[in-house]
Design a binder for these strands. Structure first.
Lengths: 168, 168
DNA sequence: GGGGTTTGTTTAGCATCCTAATAATATACG
DNA sequence: CGTATATTATTAGGATGCTAAACAAACCCC
């Protein structure tokens, strides 16, 4: 069929404006991304979310910080504290992170990588470059940069929307 | 810091190539998107996934098809059949869809919108245009089209990767 | 025509994510 | 000082997603 634009109002396809197309392509791309990444992470015995925590801890460590509190992880990973609790629970059960106490604050707990955790991160990172290149091989470097720029702009806008939403 | 590329191997930041940046921006944009959309859908008493099913059914209906099987929904929404079962269960409990039997095939079940479901879809669609515009207001129409084009290209590539992955 | 394979759906079990509510500690302020 | 508020983490309960496995029905092919 592939109806021309005037036909839109009549029948069903109310989703052909640039904004609708863009939105759907983000959702679709992310869905496909998850499907490709899941088996990849599974090879290392972890999930994508768990990798998010491990990578964040590794970066923080490389920056000289002494572990991250659950709240810090929540902020950086864009997930709520109760979700962090669950992921960290399972990582702790795997023996790749531990919960320390924070000197000046009895409420807080600091999550740090164990030796086993650092080894796992190193193993994943070794495979990570090629994997990321494979996934984005559909776009050349210039297109990847364009995509990053456009999504960065969108991300800033969404952060603005969110802060208004939460202030309300 | 912003280390130059040679420094990457040394310390921590192994994620500054265009591909890494692009990948992270997709994940981040999607995360923010979910946070903005969730309260929006909640206003209608549904979730984003449920809207995915409803919208797909509505489009199929507008195209003159007589409902969709769970497998069809699985294909179009990029989620596995067991997940479709769950979402459809809840939609059925809400009274907005029903499971019919398919004439020529005793295995299959066809999902169709109820009158209540059609009313709900109409109500959401009425608010949908402005909402989508608001969300993508950070980008002008040209940028939205660029984003769609880039993600479309990426999506095609990912579908290729996936079919190889599944064939294996 | 009948045995083996494929297809459509569901069940079971696990990992994420969410919101709302709880508990404990820190901080602020009158 | 001592109460009120804010912060940190967890628990409880619901919704999505996945894989693996079960079941029935349809199909294929000799």
């Amino acid at each position: 069929m592939k109806a021309q634009s005037p036909a839109d109002a009549a029948g069903g396809q109310a989703g052909e404006r640039p904004a609708d197309l863009a939105l759907r392509s983000i959702v679709r791309a992310f869905g496909l991304l998850e499907r490709v990444m899941q088996p990849y992470f599974a090879r290392f015995g972890i999930t994508g979310s768990q990798w998010g925590v491990l990578r964040t801890l590794q970066r923080s460590e490389a920056a000289g910080e002494a572990g991250l509190r659950l709240t810090d992880l929540s902020d950086r990973l864009l997930i709520r504290p109760p979700s962090v609790t669950g992921v960290v629970d399972r990582l702790e059960r795997l023996g790749v992170v531990v919960r320390d106490s924070v000197p000046g604050d009895l409420r807080a707990k600091r999550v740090t990588l164990t030796r086993k955790g650092r080894e796992l991160v190193a193993r994943v990172l070794a495979a990570h470059g090629p994997q990321v290149e494979t996934i984005l091989a559909g776009l050349d470097a210039g297109e990847q940069a364009d995509l990053h720029r456009l999504l960065g702009k969108l991300t800033n806008h969404l952060e603005g929307l969110l802060s208004k939403q939460e202030a309300k």
